[in-house]
Structure formats: C-alpha cells, structure tokens
Design a protein around this nucleic acid. Structure first.
Lengths: 115, 115
DNA sequence: ATTTAATATTTAGTATTGCTAGGTGATTAC
DNA sequence: GTAATCACCTAGCAATACTAAATATTAAAT
C-alpha cells in the first residue's frame, strides 16, 4: 500500500461502509468494489482480497445474508448480499459511534491545543 | 475492551493524537494518559500498554525525542518527550490526511445513498 | 510507621483487520 | 481466439490496540 497511516485509518471503517452500502441496497460483492472506488474518488480502491473477507465476517456475524442468484441470461450464479435486521441495527449503531468518534478526534485537532 | 468496532477505529488515530499532543508541548509519557482521557471525556482512556509502544514507535521513526529529566524535588527521573522537525512535518501531514479521510467517509454516510 | 494510592516506566503476548499476491472460471469486446 | 472484464475465493503478512502483568518512586491515608 502507499501509506501505512492511511491503511490504519481504514480499520473498522471499510467494514462500516460495506455494511452501509448493503443496507442501502442489496448488492453483489464485486459491485461493491466499484461503488467504493467511485464514490470515494479512488481513495477506497480495494482489491478483492480486502473485500471478500469483510463480507464473510459480516455474514458470519449475521449482519448480512447471501443468496446465489442467476443473473438474466447468465449461466454463472452471483452472490447477492442483503442486510439482516441485526445488520441494520448494527449499521445505525456504528454510524452513531463513528460520528462521536470523529468529533472526539477533532477536539484534539482544533486550536493550538495548549495545555 | 468494550467494543471491537471502536477499538479498530482508533488504529492510527491514537498515534496521530499522541504526536499532536507532543508537538503542542513537551510531555511525559504518563501525563499523556490523563490528557487523552480528560480531553476525550473518557473515550480515549488508554492503559500504559497501549501508550508506551506508541511512544517507542514514534521515537524509532524519529518523530519524537526523549530526554531523561530530573523533576524538581524528585529523585526519580522521568522521560520527557518532545517533537523533532520530522515529527512536526509528519504531524501536519497526518492531520491533512485525516481531514480528507473523514470527509471521504462522510460522503458514504450522508443521505440515503441510493446508487 | 505501615499501608495504600498514585506516579512513572517497561514488556510479553493476543486479536483484529487491511494488505499483497496469487488462484479459478464465465462473460464481453476486439 | 485472445484479451479484458466480471465474479468469486484463499493463504499468509503487517500493523496496531488490547490485556495483563512487573518494577520502582512518591504522596496520602490510617
């Protein structure tokens, strides 16, 4: 990767975003790659090796559910992910935690922080 | 820890904050614990086992410099950390990266995110 | 005086998660 | 028919916050 600092910042956040995207609308794993890349202006350009483990974790924890689906005029099935009720609740919880986290961090970055 | 998600969010951020605090004013390692806890309203209540490795990393990378110092009326010396020029530059760089990262994440969390 | 708490530093080991770097096969474009 | 894209999978590595100790000094409490 290009930057160790940025790599660390992503921890937890990528999973949050993936869950959020799936909550917004059922999606294929692969399609998430382009969504993340496009909407982040290339900042979150994940490889499959980053994304799929995230999906399996979310599935194992019951946040999302996968169904093999036959795309129209396509022999090879694709895996469609959709959020469970647990996933939706967790999605909201994480967004609240993220907002609060963000604000807390910004306290330290504001002003000259004497004392 | 209480929450795996929050634990992951801290990755990278804690080191950034510690560097920032040392840049703002030379500080003892132990004193950073109370600063972080107080200014974050208890959200960043680190244990020593979290803080000291951060300090050693920053020192190894030349971001901060430590000097054993005799506190007034105190026989036991304490380690005073201060930022190097490299550290100050890296501090600024990380703040810019953090701001940009924050904004990028918030793009995903705003609105209902259809499409 | 003795115990307790707080200051101050250190270290070993674990868990989590994003990363690289591959692999398979189906579909579309040239 | 070759290359590029779509779509999924996996093993192993790197980085960092965590727990859970240990040591020693100083200040406060009994």
């Amino acid at each position: 990767m290009e930057d160790r600092f940025l790599q660390q910042l992503k921890k937890g956040v990528l999973e949050m975003l993936v869950l959020k995207l799936i909550c917004a609308e059922p999606t294929y794993g692969y399609a998430l790659l382009s969504k993340l890349k496009k909407r982040s202006n290339g900042r979150f350009a994940l490889k499959e090796g980053t994304l799929y483990p995230i999906l399996y974790r979310l599935e194992d924890e019951g946040m999302i559910r996968a169904t093999w689906s036959q795309g129209e005029g396509r022999t090879a099935p694709k895996k469609l992910y959709e959020a469970t009720e647990t996933g939706r609740e967790e999605n909201l919880r994480r967004q609240v935690l993220w907002r609060d986290f963000e604000e807390t961090v910004d306290i330290f970055l504001e002003g000259d922080n004497q004392r």
